[in-house]
């Protein structure tokens, strides 16, 4: 199981701005391990799925060149207080992580 996703949301009018931070090494497979003289094996998130109330609204496909501890932000139209936003990622080693939050009137931090 991957590390928990940190997520924050802010509602302005009918737009919910979502910011998420996903702790992950995002190892490119190119970085050398000085002890073994071999590269560290590639280990990175390959896809991220975003749902609003169970409906997929965005799917991100990533490669090795997304930075360590990926950060992503985007905005969902027509979101209202009480809606549920869910983020889920999978990586190339079969690991995954998932979080969901209910949109609240005041800005709230959910994270660990």
């Amino acid at each position: 199981m991957g590390k928990p996703i940190k997520i924050r949301a802010k509602i302005k009018g009918d737009v919910a701005e979502i910011k998420a931070l996903m702790p992950h090494d995002m190892e490119s497979g190119l970085r050398m391990n000085p002890d073994t003289d071999q590269p560290y094996p590639a280990h990175y998130i390959t896809d991220v799925v975003v749902e609003l109330n169970g409906e997929v609204v965005m799917t991100a496909y990533w490669g090795q060149a997304v930075s360590k501890n990926p950060y992503v932000s985007f905005s969902i139209k027509g979101a209202v207080i009480g809606d549920t936003v869910k983020l889920h990622w999978n990586d190339n080693e079969g690991d995954s992580s998932e979080t969901e939050m209910v949109l609240k009137p005041k800005k709230k931090r959910i994270g660990t």
Binding site: V57, M58, T59, W62, A65, V66
Partner: peptide
Amino acid sequence: ASFDMSPRV
């Protein structure tokens, strides 16, 4: 990276 998005985003 690539982001496939619905009209909701």
